[in-house]
Lab assay of single mutants.
Amino acid sequence: MEQGTVKWFNAEKGSGFIERENGDDVFVHFSAIQGDGFKSLDEGQAVTFDVEEGQRGPQAANVQKA
């Protein structure tokens, strides 16, 4: 798993970007967020995640709040 920080997340659209510790920013969709309840992330929040190849390039998967 990688570690990173939420660069921004739009709760209305359900997507945003995570700033990786090593590498380019990666797209995140709300469906990749693990946990119960409303799936959203806050700017500056620390997260851990896997990276998968999506239709438009790398994207975060199995996102967990650190």
Results as ranks from 00 to 15, higher is better:
V28A: 01
A66K: 13
Q55D: 12
G54I: 05
D25C: 15
F30I: 06
L41P: 01
V63L: 05
F27W: 09
F30L: 04
N10T: 05
D24C: 14
D36L: 13
D24A: 14
S31M: 06
E53M: 15
A61V: 14
E2P: 05
F17Y: 08
N62Y: 06
Q64W: 11
D50Q: 14
G57T: 05
A60P: 02
V47T: 03
V63Y: 01
N10H: 06
E2D: 07
R56K: 11
H29T: 04
E12D: 10
S31W: 08
E53K: 10
R56L: 10
R20Y: 07
D25M: 15
F38I: 08
Q34Y: 09
N10Q: 05
I33T: 04
E53Q: 13
Q55G: 11
N62S: 05
G44W: 04
G54P: 02
E52L: 13
A60G: 03
F38Y: 11
Q34K: 11
V63Q: 00
G16P: 02
K39A: 06
R20K: 06
D36C: 14
D25N: 09
D42Y: 15
F27M: 01
Q59P: 04
F17T: 03
F49T: 00
K39H: 05
I18Q: 03
A60L: 01
P58T: 09
N22G: 10
E52C: 14
V28D: 02
V47M: 03
E53F: 14
I18T: 01
A66Q: 12
D36S: 13
D25S: 10
V51M: 09
P58E: 05
F30M: 05
S15C: 15
I33F: 06
G57S: 05
P58V: 09
R20I: 06
Q55S: 13
E19V: 14
K39Q: 08
R20N: 04
G14K: 01
Q64C: 09
V6D: 00
G23C: 07
G16C: 06
V51P: 01
H29F: 09
Q3C: 15
T48C: 12
R56P: 07
M1A: 13
G44Q: 04
E53N: 12
G23K: 08
G44D: 04
F27Q: 03
N22L: 09
E53T: 11
W8E: 02
S15K: 10
D50A: 11
Q55A: 13
I18G: 00
T5W: 15
G35P: 02
A11N: 10
Q34V: 14
S15E: 12
E12C: 15
D42V: 15
F9R: 01
A61E: 04
R20G: 05
S15R: 11
R20C: 07
E12H: 13
K7Y: 04
G35R: 00
G4C: 08
Q64R: 14
G4M: 00
Q34E: 09
V63K: 00
A61N: 08
F17V: 09
F27K: 00
V28Q: 01
S40D: 05
Q45F: 05
G37V: 06
I33L: 07
E53G: 07
K13T: 12
K13E: 07
H29K: 04
Q3H: 14
A60F: 02
A32Y: 04
S15L: 15
E19M: 15
E12N: 12
A66N: 12
K39L: 10
I33R: 00
Q55L: 14
S40W: 14
F17Q: 04
V26W: 03
E43D: 09
E19F: 12
V47S: 02
F17I: 09
E43C: 15
V6I: 08
M1K: 15
N22F: 11
I18W: 03
G23Q: 08
K65S: 10
Q3G: 08
F9N: 00
D50M: 14
A11Q: 12
G35M: 13
N10I: 05
K13Q: 09
G35I: 09
G14M: 02
M1N: 12
F49G: 02
G37N: 06
E21Y: 10
V47R: 03
S40H: 09
N62I: 04
T5P: 00
Q45S: 08
G4D: 00
Q3S: 13
A60N: 00
Q3A: 11
F27A: 03
G54S: 10
W8Y: 08
T5Y: 13
F9S: 01
F38Q: 06
A61K: 13
E2V: 11
D42T: 15
D36M: 12
F49D: 01
D25I: 13
Q45I: 08
R20P: 03
Q64K: 12
Q59E: 08
V51G: 00
Q55E: 12
D36R: 11
K39V: 07
A61R: 12
V51C: 07
G37P: 06
E43V: 15
N22Q: 10
A32E: 03
A60S: 02
T5Q: 07
Q59S: 07
A60Q: 01
A61D: 02
H29P: 03
R56N: 11
V6M: 04
G37R: 03
A66R: 12
P58R: 10
I33K: 00
A32G: 07
I18E: 01
F30N: 00
E43I: 15
F38E: 07
M1Q: 14
G23I: 03
G14T: 03
G35S: 10
H29L: 07
F30G: 00
V63E: 01
N10K: 05
D42P: 07
E52K: 11
S15A: 11
G57Q: 03
R56I: 07
Q3N: 12
E12I: 12
D25P: 08
W8M: 05
K13Y: 08
N22K: 10
V63I: 06
G14I: 03
W8F: 08
N62D: 02
N22D: 10
G44R: 06
K65T: 10
V26L: 12
L41I: 05
D42E: 14
G54E: 05
V28C: 08
D36N: 12
K65P: 11
I18S: 02
Q34H: 10
V26S: 02
E19D: 05
V6L: 05
T5C: 15
N62Q: 05
E19Q: 14
F9D: 00
R56D: 08
G14A: 03
V51Y: 06
F9G: 01
Q34I: 14
V63D: 03
Q59L: 08
V47F: 04
Q45V: 09
K65M: 10
G4I: 02
V51T: 06
T5D: 02
Q64D: 05
S31F: 06
N62F: 07
F49P: 02
Q59A: 07
V51I: 15
E53L: 13
H29N: 03
K7H: 07
D36V: 12
G44F: 05
V28Y: 04
S40T: 14
Q55K: 14
E2S: 10
V47L: 03
N22M: 09
I18D: 01
H29W: 06
A46L: 13
G16T: 02
W8H: 04
G37L: 06
D50L: 13
Q3V: 13
A61L: 10
G37H: 06
G37E: 06
A66D: 09
